[in-house]
Nucleic acid binder design. Structure first.
Length: 134
DNA sequence: GCCAACGTTGGC
DNA sequence: GCCAACGTTGGC
């Protein structure tokens, strides 16, 4: 099983809306590096959901609920999507400041490559963030 | 609001 | 194929 972190601006697609809808198609990714990570996703993989910009915190966990498939409407360009379902809301969102101040977490891609919107995380980092957040 | 980091585009 | 110009993202 693999672990991932996906970003969303709360103004564009919030965790609250994701919870309400119960499922999301993770579409609109227009970055090759991010797309290559989506391609590697598998049903059942665990995902950290990060709010960028205003909140700058991991707010919950999700699960990949489909194998990756071509984005409807963008098939000809080869963009990929996957379905996601929410798992758990964090009672204490894990902020970027917290992540940067943790020895285990301070070197994750979220910190090193701030513009990437879909990225892998290690199982250790995933577990640590859950521990801090739940 | 500013700026750093990064990606894309287009002229040469 | 290089590089300048420009656009976007996201932290501060």
């Amino acid at each position: 099983m693999n672990y991932w972190l996906v970003k969303s601006e709360p103004d564009t697609y919030s965790w609250e809306l994701f919870l309400k809808e119960g499922k999301a198609v993770w579409d609109g990714v227009r970055n090759y590096q991010a797309r290559n990570f989506i391609k590697e996703m598998k049903t059942g993989d665990k995902v950290l959901f990060y709010h960028s910009n205003k909140q700058k915190a991991v707010v919950g966990t999700a699960q990949v609920a489909s194998m990756p498939y071509l984005e409807p409407g963008a098939e000809k360009d080869g963009w990929m999507v996957a379905d996601m379902i929410p798992l758990q809301s964090f009672s204490k969102p894990v902020t970027l400041v917290q992540i940067k101040s943790d020895n285990l977490l301070k070197n994750i891609l979220l910190v090193r490559q701030s513009r990437l919107s879909v990225m892998p995380v290690s199982s250790d980092a995933y577990k640590m963030i859950c521990k801090l957040g739940l």
